[in-house]
Design a protein around this nucleic acid. Sequence first.
DNA 1: TCTGAAAGTCACGAAGG
DNA 2: CCTTCGTGACTTTCAGA
Lengths: 156, 156
Amino acid sequence: MSERNTGPGALEATDRAILRELARDGRCSFTELAERVGLSVSAVHQRVRRLEQRGALQGYTAKVDGEQIGLPLTAFISLTPIDPAAPDDYPQRLQHLPEIESCYSVAGDESYILQVRVASPLGLEDLLRQIREAAKVSTRTTVVLSTPFENRPPAI
Amino acid sequence: MSERNTGPGALEATDRAILRELARDGRCSFTELAERVGLSVSAVHQRVRRLEQRGALQGYTAKVDGEQIGLPLTAFISLTPIDPAAPDDYPQRLQHLPEIESCYSVAGDESYILQVRVASPLGLEDLLRQIREAAKVSTRTTVVLSTPFENRPPAI
DNA sequence: TCTGAAAGTCACGAAGG
DNA sequence: CCTTCGTGACTTTCAGA
């Protein structure tokens, strides 16, 4: 009974509706979810479990204000390998640094872009030194001044 | 060593513990939260409500697999104003585009960095046209090839 | 894959120290 | 700011269509 109109492995309308609601409110109750998508609570429950198993739902997180936890400074750091022939294991070399929130492998001038959160300019300086040492890369840093919006739920 | 968050408006250890757990598991029950931080369920409940009111907790979201919802292509787009004297209202001009997940005002060569998610290269091309038209900016795009890790919970 | 019901667990507010 | 307590709501499982 699977629909193949939208491509292999595609999700049908009800599953997308569930993902949309959970992306908007990650703590939405099953009861409320059921009302919104027009199914029984049990059916929604089964679908959510299936979406989790399938990897369509990759977890739930609270958005925390960086300023209030003492990490007011966000920056993007572009990495360029010093030795172009070195093995490409940068993510593994960097994942132990908790200040690095995200790591993207990219096409373009640089090889990776990191998104980081630190307490201060001094903390950023220290982090940059650790990154260069751990990964043998040169870095280019872009400091975030403000964040008009962030991690908005995608249009599902 | 000096504590990170000792200034006015700082959060104490229990509140930080709550934020840490909710950042790790946004659907964590109050009961489990209470066990982890060593308080009664009601006390945790009160603290969470206070953290929400205070803005330290800015919401809860499910992480959704971009590929499975038909948005497999992520990119960063740097914006440079065409007219340097134009009013700086770019976020307002761009927020109606749902493909734009995040918008950062930055120091450096560019004025803004956008993080976007689209269905295909054609979708990216179309989005770039809309961004240029809406904001009167020139753009520089960096396509994400893979994401070793993303939105890891900060070290609270 | 759905529904409805049963049983256990949890959320949430009240009252009080 | 904490605790305990009570009630209503919610989660979770299961049998059956």
